[in-house]
């Protein structure tokens, strides 16, 4: 059987790499490596050797120039020792080869700021939307209900209806370049996740169910291939029932809801790559 290899990026302010790697392992990935950015830049580790790139949450460069902004800039300019290739060129090749990228929170912000999402018409590398300061003006840690768009091409959300996960961010408000773009995202079903009511039925703009004031209640989007996916809430934070904030008072399933995202990814790799 095909060996599934996942790479979880670390370093420079990333801070959810351990639980993200744990999620990949639980989901059945055969190889899970936590790789520091520096080890890719030094040429020691090659992204080409993996199928599934995980961009975890954190504070890349402290989010000092805006969330993930300095890192997006690094992808464009930093070169890999030896080959002289730019980081983004390596990522574009990874995408062309049909592989998977999942960005969570700061990782989603990175995908957006570096133009990996939404990648409309297969064009990557140019920022087309943004994630910026929550309407509350605050960082917030709170659990949210997410309605899954079952028509979305996202391979990560296949078979899911709703998710209950924590958000932990100060810059999660989704703003598209313009209304036409928002309409295109909707038309193509690229809006994979929306903040919703507790029944996972109605997307909502109401605070705190929608914790940041995102346009169209957007919490996560994918590209047209469905293989690139970014979301603000943290699926790797809910792998076990004890992560649920009310496990001591409600019946919750043994397996955490976030794991399904990783299972889908691993299964996709096994079948298709």
């Amino acid at each position: 059987m095909k060996k599934v290899k996942a790479l979880v990026l670390a370093g420079n302010g990333i801070n959810c790499e351990m639980e993200m790697a744990h999620a990949c392992r639980l989901a059945g990935s055969d190889v899970v490596d936590i790789v520091f950015l520096y080890d890719i830049l030094s040429g020691e580790v090659k992204l080409d050797d993996y199928h599934f790139l995980n961009l975890p949450g954190g504070f890349l460069d402290g989010d000092d120039l805006g969330a993930a902004k300095a890192m997006a800039h690094r992808l464009k300019y930093a070169k890999i020792a030896g080959s002289g290739e730019r980081l983004d060129e390596v990522i574009f090749r990874f995408i062309r080869e049909g592989k998977l990228i999942l960005g969570v929170c700061n990782g989603f912000q990175l995908m957006v700021k570096s133009g990996l999402l939404p990648g409309l018409k297969g064009i990557y590398g140019k920022q087309a939307l943004t994630l910026t300061f929550n309407d509350s003006g605050r960082f917030e840690d709170r659990w949210v209900y997410l309605k899954v768009n079952s028509n979305s091409p996202s391979i990560f959300t296949r078979g899911l209806k709703g998710l209950y996960l924590p958000v932990r961010h100060g810059e999660g408000k989704f703003i598209p370049k313009n209304d036409e773009m928002l309409a295109e995202l909707e038309r193509k079903n690229l809006i994979a996740l929306q903040y919703s009511d507790p029944d996972y039925r109605k997307p909502t703009l109401e605070y705190p169910l929608n914790p940041n004031g995102s346009a169209s209640a957007i919490a996560g989007i994918c590209d047209e291939t469905g293989r690139l996916f970014g979301m603000m809430p943290h699926p790797e934070a809910y792998l076990y029932f004890v992560n649920h904030p009310r496990w001591t008072r409600e019946k919750v399933p043994e397996e955490g809801m976030g794991l399904a995202i990783f299972r889908n990814a691993v299964e996709y790799v096994r079948k298709n790559l």
């Binding site: 949450g57 009310r246 008072r249």
Partner: peptide, 20 residues
Amino acid sequence: IRQYDHEVQGGCVIKPLVGA
């Protein structure tokens, strides 16, 4: 409390805020 991340690293199982 909400403005602090109390769940990063994935191990927080009884959180600072609990209940219905």
